[in-house]
Design a protein around this nucleic acid. Structure first.
Lengths: 309, 309
DNA sequence: AATCTGCATATCAAAATTGGTATGTGCATC
DNA sequence: GATGCACATACCAATTTTGATATGCAGATT
C-alpha cells in the first residue's frame, strides 16, 4: 500500500467507474472493450494493490464496499479531469482557443457572465464556452466535482471556504416588479407594510432571494404572503404579473432588463425604502486547480464587469 | 488523436510534470527513477500520441511549447487529484476516515458507545460518526434497512438471529435510584420485600427493564407496585424522585452517571441483595453487509469496553 | 577545433501486461 | 436437485513495455 502510487493506472479507475455504474462486471468489461475474465483479473489485481475488497459480489452483480465507493467517487472526478485535459490539449493542438465552463447564479448570468462572454468572443475564435445557470449549492458542488472552471455563486453555509480561491463580487439589490397600472406604483419608495396582502411570485423556499425577502417580512412584523406562486422562470413571472396585481421581487440586474427606469414598458420596478439585499455572490474557483488561460481571461472579464457597472 | 484516451497513462503526466518542473530531461528521468534514454523514449512516444511537440529542446534543457504548457498545467491538477484519491482511499482502508452509523440502546450508549467514540476520535481525522439511541426493535429494523453499520441492541423475540453476526455483550445490572433522604437508604443491600409499597418510576410495560423488574416481583411473591409513573425520560424520573419517596430502577451505567458511588449528590443508587439482570444486549451486524474499516474499528473498541469494565 | 552538455537513437534482454478461450464455483431460483 | 447467472481461475500465446548500455548528434563554450 505504500508505493501504491505507481501501481495504479488510469485503466483501474475506468474499471472501478464502469463497475460502479453498471453494477456488473461483464457490462463493465464490455465498456472497456475486454472480456469478462480480463476484467475480473484487472479487478483482482487492483484489489490486491489496494489491500481491500472494493466490491461485494452477489449472485446478481456487484455493489461497492465503502472503500470502493470512495474510490469510485474519486475515479469519477479524476476521469472528468482527464477528459477536460484531453479536450484542452486537443484544442491546443488544433489551434483552437480551448474550452471554459462556468456556472452562475441567475443574477450573475444576466448581469455579468453574458456580457463577459460577448467580450471574450470578440477577442478569441473557436473558443468553446459553456454557461450553466443553477442555484449556489449546485454550482459549488459542480465546482468541487470538476464540472466548472469557476462559478459565479454564493458560498453556501456549511461549506469550507478555504478550499476556494474567491474574488469578491457585488451585492444583489432587490426591487419589486409590478405591472404598470398596479396600485403600488402610486407611492414613492415602498415601506415594508405596503408589501402585505399582495399575491407574490417568487423563487422557491430556501433560495437566497426568498430568504432575504422573508427576512424583511419577519423583521417588519408583517405576515408572510399567503398567496404565492413559486417559480424561477422569468417567463412565468412576467406572464403572471401582466394579468394580475401580483408583485415579484427581482434583482436589480433583472429589473434593468425587464423594466428599465424611465422606459414605457408594461412593467415597473419599484424600490424599497430600506433596500433588501441578498448575500453577495463571488467568483469562486478551486485552489487546487490551475485555470487555463482562456478561463482566466473570462474570469477577469467578469470581474471587470463588477467594477464598471 | 481520438482514441488518445486509452493511450495516455499516468506515467506520461508524471513525466510532463517532471520535465516542466526541472527543465531538464535527465533530472526528470531521475525523478521517475529511470535512465535518461528511457525518459527520452517515453517523451517521444507521448509526443507521437499527442501529435505535436511538447517541449522545445535547446542546448541547456527543455522548455514547454504552448501545448506542453497546457498539458503540464493539467498534469499538475490531475496528479494532485490522484494524490488526494490515494490519501482518501488509504485513510478509508486503514480506518482513519470514513463513515460509520451505529445505533444503541440507552444503557449501551452511555456505557460503551460514547467512550468508544471518544477513543476512536483520537485516531481518526475527518471521520463521520453517527450515533442513534433507540429501542431494540427500532434498531434491528434500522439495521435490516441498512441504516446502521451495526447496533448495540437486544435481539427482539421473533427475529431470526441467523442473518446477524452477533458478538455477545454484557449483561445490564439494575440498581435502584432514590433521593438521598429516602428511608431505604438506611438499609444495606435491598431484599425484594423492601421494594414493596413504594411508588415507582419505571419504563413502559414490555420493555426489557420492566420485564426484569416484574420478574423479581413475581418470583418473590410480592405484589406489583400499584403506583407507577411510566417514563423513559431521565429528566422526568429525576424530577419525580427528587420530590417524592418514589424509587426507580436504572442500569448501572446510568447510575454511575447520575449518582456515582461515594458522591454527595441529591440521589443514591442502591444495590439489591439478589441483583436484577436484564436481557443482555449484543453487538449485532448484518452478515451480508461488509463493514468499513472505520466501522470495524469502532465495533472493536466497543467490544473491548465490554471486557475491560 | 576541441570539448562539453544534453537529448536522441540503437540494440538487446527480460519481464510484465494483455487478451483470449475454456472451465470452475457459488448462490439463487425454479 | 437442476438450471442459470455472474464472477473466478487456469492456461496459453503474443505483444508491449521496460530498462539498461553504448553511442550518436547538435548547439554552445572555451
Amino acid at each position: 500500500m505504500q508505493n501504491l502510487a505507481n501501481r495504479l493506472q488510469l485503466r483501474d479507475f475506468r474499471l472501478v467507474q464502469a463497475i460502479a455504474d453498471t453494477g456488473q462486471l461483464a457490462l463493465a468489461a464490455e465498456r472497456l472493450a475486454v472480456t469478462q475474465p480480463a476484467a475480473s483479473r484487472l479487478l483482482a489485481r487492483l484489489e490486491s494493490v489496494i489491500g481491500a475488497p472494493l466490491f461485494i459480489r452477489h449472485p446478481k452483480g456487484m455493489t461497492p464496499t465503502p472503500i470502493g465507493e470512495t474510490l469510485a467517487r474519486n475515479a469519477n472526478s479524476l476521469l472528468r479531469s482527464l477528459d477536460q485535459t484531453l479536450n484542452e490539449t486537443g484544442a491546443a493542438v488544433s489551434g483552437r482557443a480551448g474550452t471554459v465552463r462556468v456556472g452562475s447564479v441567475t443574477g450573475g448570468a444576466v448581469g455579468f457572465v453574458v456580457p463577459a462572454v460577448q467580450n471574450l468572443k470578440k477577442i478569441t475564435s473557436g473558443a468553446d464556452i459553456h454557461v450553466d445557470v443553477a442555484p449556489s449549492d449546485v454550482l459549488i458542488n459542480g465546482l468541487l466535482h470538476g464540472e466548472y472552471d469557476f462559478v459565479l455563486s454564493r458560498i453556501p453555509a456549511g461549506t469550507d471556504p478555504r478550499q476556494f480561491s474567491v474574488k469578491r463580487g457585488r451585492v444583489e439589490v432587490i426591487r419589486i416588479l409590478v405591472r404598470r397600472d398596479h396600485p403600488l406604483t402610486r407611492f414613492g419608495p415602498l415601506k415594508p407594510k405596503y408589501l402585505e396582502g399582495w399575491e407574490w411570485v417568487i423563487q422557491a423556499p430556501h433560495t437566497p432571494m426568498r430568504q432575504a425577502v422573508e427576512e424583511v417580512f419577519y423583521s417588519s412584523g408583517i405576515s408572510l404572503p399567503s398567496e404565492i406562486v413559486n417559480t424561477t422562470s422569468l417567463l412565468v413571472m412576467i406572464g403572471y404579473l401582466a394579468s394580475t396585481d401580483a408583485i415579484a421581487p427581482i434583482t436589480r440586474e433583472v429589473a434593468d432588463l425587464v423594466a428599465p427606469d424611465g422606459s414605457e414598458g408594461r412593467f415597473v420596478a419599484l424600490d424599497l425604502e430600506e433596500p433588501i439585499i441578498i448575500n453577495p455572490y463571488h467568483l469562486i474557483s478551486l485552489k487546487t486547480h490551475t485555470l487555463s488561460p482562456l478561463a482566466i481571461r473570462l474570469r477577469d472579464l467578469i470581474f471587470e464587469g463588477f467594477s464598471t457597472s
